[in-house]
Computed example of a mutant assay.
Amino acid sequence: MRSSSRLVRPRHPLFWLLVALQVLSGVFALVLTQAEPAVAVAVLLSALLVANASVSALIVWRLWREPD
């Protein structure tokens, strides 16, 4: 089993990109749940959330694969 320490690498730029994407995902989710945006905005934010999650999953996969 792979260790989560392979993900937490502050000197790796992908780690910080992953952190930024997770913060952005939280902001999108907060806007969707608290602000009750118009339907078009909600659809756009939902699509951005799916894209954000996909990119984040690829970054996690790449960080796990790369040697320390």
Rank of each mutant, 00 (worst) to 15 (best):
V27F: 08
D68T: 05
L7W: 04
L24H: 09
L14H: 13
R6V: 08
A47N: 08
V31P: 09
L7G: 03
L32M: 11
P10R: 12
F28T: 05
S56A: 15
A20C: 11
F28M: 12
R62N: 09
L24F: 15
L30S: 07
Q34V: 15
L44I: 12
R2G: 06
A29Q: 04
D68L: 14
V50F: 09
S56R: 13
L21E: 11
P13M: 04
L63G: 03
N52F: 02
Q34Y: 09
W64S: 05
L45S: 11
A35I: 13
L21T: 09
L63R: 00
A40F: 15
F15V: 03
G26V: 09
P13G: 07
W61V: 12
I59C: 05
S46A: 15
L30E: 00
V31W: 01
G26R: 04
V8R: 02
V41Y: 04
A38H: 11
S4T: 05
A29C: 07
D68R: 15
L45R: 08
L17S: 03
V43M: 01
V19Q: 03
W16H: 15
V43N: 00
A42R: 15
P10M: 08
V23I: 15
L30Q: 03
F15W: 03
S4E: 05
S46R: 14
L49T: 07
A20D: 05
A29L: 13
N52M: 01
I59E: 00
A47R: 03
P10G: 07
A53W: 14
W64A: 08
A51P: 01
F28I: 15
L30T: 02
V23Q: 01
V27Y: 07
S3V: 05
A57Y: 10
A40L: 15
A38E: 06
W61I: 07
A38K: 12
V31D: 00
L18A: 01
S46Y: 01
A42T: 06
Q22H: 06
L48A: 14
T33D: 06
V31N: 05
R6C: 09
L58H: 14
S46N: 14
L24G: 07
S5E: 07
V23A: 12
L45E: 10
L58S: 09
A42S: 15
H12L: 10
V19D: 02
M1P: 05
L7C: 07
I59S: 04
V19Y: 00
Q34T: 14
V50R: 00
L21R: 15
Q34C: 10
A20M: 12
A57P: 07
W16K: 10
W61M: 04
E36M: 13
L63N: 02
L45M: 13
L63C: 04
V60F: 06
S56E: 03
L32N: 02
V41F: 11
R2L: 11
L63D: 03
L14C: 11
T33A: 14
A35Y: 10
S3W: 13
H12G: 10
N52E: 06
T33S: 12
P37D: 05
R2M: 08
L48Q: 10
E66R: 01
V43D: 00
V41E: 03
V8C: 12
L17R: 02
P13A: 08
A29E: 08
A38I: 01
S4L: 12
R2S: 13
V50D: 07
A42I: 03
L17T: 07
L32D: 00
L32T: 00
P10K: 12
V39E: 10
A40S: 14
T33F: 14
L48D: 13
